[in-house]
Amino acid sequence: MGNKVGRGTLLNRTQTAALFGIAATTLDDWVRRGCPVVERGSRGKRWTFNSADVHAWREHDIRSETAGVQLATSDELKRRKLAAETGAAELAYAQAAELVAPVEQIERAMAKAFGEVRANLRNVLPSRAARRLIGETSETRLKAVLLEEVDHALEALADTDLIAEADLDLSDDEDGDED
């Protein structure tokens, strides 16, 4: 096949592909991913691989793939970096244009809104429903009245601003005291 060198045999591209049972294009892909090459080929010059080095690289490559650690190509790393930079720039633009809000601001507003909904349903609904249901024995009528009262409470909440502008201001202390 080729010359015996140290712990491997020197092989050309076709011989290396045949040894590993792969297509020459697959070997090209391996080289792009870091497969060791003794000498790169060009016009009139053959590729040279050391069979032992290629075998050791392939073993490491297989272990990396099965461990979920894949070595990225430089093109893939560049693409990922560009995507990250683009995402960061888009987020910065959205923040400057006030198209997004900090998570803390949303959490504060949602907690206030849900508190209002809970208070309304717990305080208003039972008192209004109780007056309408005194002496009622029909399950169908009980359900209908309760649904009407729930709908009425939710409609009232829908017409109310549950979140004031101050609820969205993060400059306040957590205790609600202003600086």
Rank of each mutant, 00 (worst) to 15 (best):
N3P: 00
K4G: 05
R7C: 00
G8R: 00
G8K: 04
G8N: 03
L10N: 07
L10V: 10
L11R: 04
N12T: 08
N12K: 04
R13E: 13
T14L: 09
T16H: 03
A18D: 14
L19F: 09
G21A: 07
A23N: 12
A24V: 15
A24F: 00
T25W: 01
L27M: 01
D28Y: 04
D28W: 08
W30I: 04
V31H: 07
R33C: 02
G34V: 07
C35T: 09
P36Q: 06
V37G: 01
V38R: 08
E39G: 04
S42Y: 07
R43K: 12
G44I: 00
G44M: 02
R46A: 14
N50L: 06
N50G: 03
N50Y: 01
S51F: 10
A52I: 03
A52V: 03
A56S: 12
R58C: 07
D61H: 13
I62Q: 14
R63S: 10
S64K: 13
T66V: 14
G68S: 10
G68E: 03
Q70A: 13
Q70S: 11
L71K: 11
L71R: 12
A72I: 08
T73W: 00
S74R: 10
L77V: 13
K78A: 15
K78P: 00
K78H: 10
R80P: 00
K81T: 14
K81W: 09
L82Y: 08
A83T: 02
A83H: 06
A84E: 15
A89T: 11
E90D: 15
Y93T: 11
A94W: 08
Q95V: 11
A96R: 13
A96L: 11
A96D: 14
L99G: 15
Q105D: 04
E107T: 15
R108F: 06
G115S: 06
G115T: 05
R118H: 09
A119N: 14
N120R: 11
L121W: 07
L121D: 04
L121S: 02
N123Q: 15
P126S: 06
A130M: 13
R131G: 08
R132G: 07
L133Q: 01
E136W: 00
A144T: 12
L146I: 13
L147E: 12
D151S: 15
D151G: 10
D151H: 12
E155Y: 03
E155V: 10
A156N: 11
L157W: 08
A158T: 09
D159S: 08
T160M: 09
D161K: 14
D161R: 14
A164L: 11
A166M: 02
A166T: 13
D167T: 01
L170Y: 04
L170Q: 09
S171I: 04
S171Q: 12
E174M: 04
D175F: 12
D177R: 06
D177Q: 09
E178W: 09
E178D: 13
E178Q: 12
E178V: 12
D179G: 14
